[in-house]
């Protein structure tokens, strides 16, 4: 049997790669020029879902690597009790919930953005957390207990930057005013809670339903067996 030599280019075209590179590099522009940046991100198609996925992946990797490689002076974690799936879910789930919840509310509130665009905006806003997070993780291993303030400072800086960028992104993508953005963001967070609640209710309902049929089956089985 003759095996074809598999080339990377047969999966990923050169054009796609250069577009991906360009859109990924655009995230660096966005974080310093949020208003222009997020406007052009969707309206001028200077961002891509591929780059957004990659940013989310980098953020996920950061959160996983932090478990192992942050100094225990900063985060004292019992690695024996870490469940990797829970850790992954705790990063991915809030991002997806935010996007879905935000899109659900903004479609009712004259938001111009589509789900894809909301996702892209949120993912691009993660950039400062990624850029600060990786060096900060390494830095933490060179700090004594008194110097942890530096770590906390950079960590908080990244967070604040992220929140500001998300707000800017929502403003530009939905073409909102600042007050409307803040209002819709609060609603979004409430919506996230509602979605989680419904999921939990749904889950318990389904499991109760299954248990019901299982017990019926068992009753019948006991009778005839």
């Amino acid at each position: 049997m003759r095996l074809k030599k598999i080339k990377l280019s047969s999966f990923i075209s050169k054009e796609w790669l250069s577009h991906f590179g360009k859109t990924l590099k655009y995230s660096l522009y966005v974080i310093f020029h949020p208003f222009d940046g997020f406007w052009d991100l969707t309206h001028e198609k200077r961002g891509s879902v591929g780059a957004a996925n990659f940013l989310v992946f980098l953020f996920l990797m950061l959160n996983i690597l932090k478990l192992q490689f942050t100094s225990f002076l900063v985060r004292n974690i019992n690695l024996n009790r870490i469940n990797m799936w829970v850790e992954i879910a705790s990063v991915i789930a809030p991002i997806l919930l935010w996007c879905v919840s935000n899109w659900s509310f903004t479609t009712l509130m004259d938001g111009k953005g589509r789900l894809k665009e909301v996702y892209m905006g949120t993912a691009y806003a993660l950039t400062p957390m990624i850029i600060i997070g990786y060096p900060n993780m390494i830095l933490s291993n060179f700090l004594t207990i008194e110097e942890i303030t530096f770590y906390t400072f950079f960590d908080t800086l990244g967070m604040i930057w992220f929140v500001a960028l998300v707000l800017a992104a929502m403003m530009m993508i939905h073409d909102y005013s600042l007050t409307k953005t803040v209002f819709s963001s609060i609603l979004t967070i409430v919506g996230m809670a509602v979605i989680v609640f419904i999921l939990v209710v749904f889950f318990s309902l389904i499991s109760d339903g299954i248990a019901y049929f299982v017990s019926i089956y068992q009753e019948i089985q006991f009778r005839f067996y």
């Binding site: 225990f72 002076l73 004292n76 060179f142 004594t144 207990i145 008194e146």
Partner: peptide, 18 residues
């Protein structure tokens, strides 16, 4: 110190080591 997660002593030793 790291084995038993004694943060304060580890920090002291690390400061000297650094």
């Amino acid at each position: 110190f790291k084995a038993k997660r004694d943060r304060r002593n580890y920090s002291k030793a690390f400061e000297q080591y650094r």
